[in-house]
Amino acid sequence: MSSPIQRSPLRVSLSSLTPNNLGTVRKLNSVLFPIKYSEKFYQDILLPEAEDFCKLIYYNDIPVGTICCRVETENGKTRLYIMTMGILAPYRSRGLGSQSLEQVIASAASHLKPKIGSISLHVQVSNPAGKAFYERHAFKEVGIHQGYYKKIVPQDAWILERQIVEP
């Protein structure tokens, strides 16, 4: 087992999800995203194979953000898909997101069975700041998914992707 909390000088730390802190994830999701997530979502992020890719983000020992990904295999190719990633508004622009994203990418790069080739996500087209954030982390726009969102407007989303190179 890896230790759940890794300290960094920025007073930022990541912690694994457990059934006990799931309430915090629910609370964060409810304020960060316009979408309500299903129970299936909350079951999946607790799966042992998701542990390296689903984290709570702490700042000064307070949970202020979350990143949740899942590993998908399609046509023999395995990729990491970022389902949610968000930081509470007052804590943005402090490098929390970048640091967490880089850590997840690092975990993906060292993932062996199966090997993860790329990492991708959707960003709503009304969120250019979000897109820019990922582009700073070497993500590229590979297309637009029309009508991706059913209940919120605008319904379209950019598809962003980054290839993973082995460490």
Binding site: I35, K36, Y37, S38, K40, F41, M83, Y149, K150, K151
Partner: peptide
């Protein structure tokens, strides 16, 4: 309430 969210994601 929202199984929709899942399909979207």
């Amino acid at each position: 309430a929202d199984t929709q969210g899942k399909t979207e994601m």
